[in-house]
């Protein structure tokens, strides 16, 4: 086992302990906008960054080629956006919902394994940038999905008069609805930039990776328009943000095996 994989295991264990800590705190009713939670997320992020750095050294390029590497990079981007977005939107508990998804993605990566890359000639910075921006866009869609779950949980508790526990920790549903919109827009903007770069790279239009990226772009463009024009209720848009993320998730597997 390489040192990079050990770092990833440590990062995954850190995120799992963040989940356990949060669940225990919520169960005992002693949950606070926790420093412990934040510290664990920060430690996990540092370990993830360490993994990406050492893995990059091993393969001689940005580690974004295999499905396992892509999963870790998206997981890293999710935590990065969590720190940027979570505080900006005051989304308490976002970490509690983020840590399980990040843990699952990293466990999948570890199970999948990390094979060495084929030797690559000259590194094209635009290609690397295109891939990185596209994956950060996917991370924004993942956070929109997580926020959508938070919305649906809060909405259900309000409708069913289940006041207590999580209810007091979750933000107002109006704030969650606008956070979903902003995250979808952010993801769409980043994906547009990534696709714009692909034009500069003169990538073939029939390239399966590009085709799937355009499909994902189109899906989120539609979701964004529905939200912007208020064609659907926030509940339906939350469902769209949750279910919509299945497509980019599946597309990752397809593009890495294409």
């Amino acid at each position: 086992m390489t040192s990079s994989q050990l770092l990833l295991i440590a990062a995954t264990l850190t995120f799992v302990s963040a989940v356990v800590q949060a669940l225990l705190a919520l169960k005992s009713g002693a949950w606070k906008q926790g420093r412990a939670q934040l510290m664990l997320m920060a430690l996990g992020f540092a370990l993830q960054t360490g993994f990406i750095y050492f893995r990059g050294q091993e393969v001689g390029q940005c580690p974004m080629k295999s499905l396992s590497d892509i999963l870790v990079f998206i997981a890293w981007s999710i935590v990065l956006l969590y720190f940027l977005v979570g505080s900006a939107f005051r989304l308490s508990l976002l970490g509690v919902f983020t840590a399980p998804l990040v843990s699952i993605m990293q466990i999948m990566a570890l199970v999948g394994g990390f094979a060495p890359y084929k030797p690559k000639g000259q590194i094209n910075a635009l290609v690397e940038l295109h891939a990185a921006v596209a994956l950060i866009a996917y991370a924004a869609f993942a956070l929109a999905c997580i926020t959508g779950v938070m919305y649906l949980v809060q909405e259900r508790m309000l409708k069913r008069h289940q006041i207590g526990g999580l209810f007091y920790q979750l933000p107002p549903i109006q704030g969650l609805a606008s956070a979903i919109q902003r995250l979808v827009r952010l993801g769409l903007l980043l994906l547009s930039i990534a696709l714009g770069i692909s034009f500069a790279l003169q990538t073939s239009v029939s390239n399966p990776k590009l085709v799937f990226s355009w499909v994902v772009w189109a899906l989120y463009a539609v979701i964004s328009i529905l939200m912007w024009k208020h064609f659907t209720s926030p509940r339906k848009t939350a469902w769209l943000a949750v279910i919509g993320f299945i497509l980019p998730f599946i597309s990752l597997w397809i593009v890495t095996h294409a």
Partner: peptide, 26 residues
């Protein structure tokens, strides 16, 4: 107050109304 939830939850109709409003809107 930090180690228990003694102040959590609403105990009057007025404070329940406030809690609910806070979880729907800013």
């Amino acid at each position: 107050r930090n180690e228990t939830t003694i102040q959590r939850g609403s105990t009057s109709v007025g404070s329940v109304a406030v809690d609910l409003a806070e979880k729907v809107h800013d």
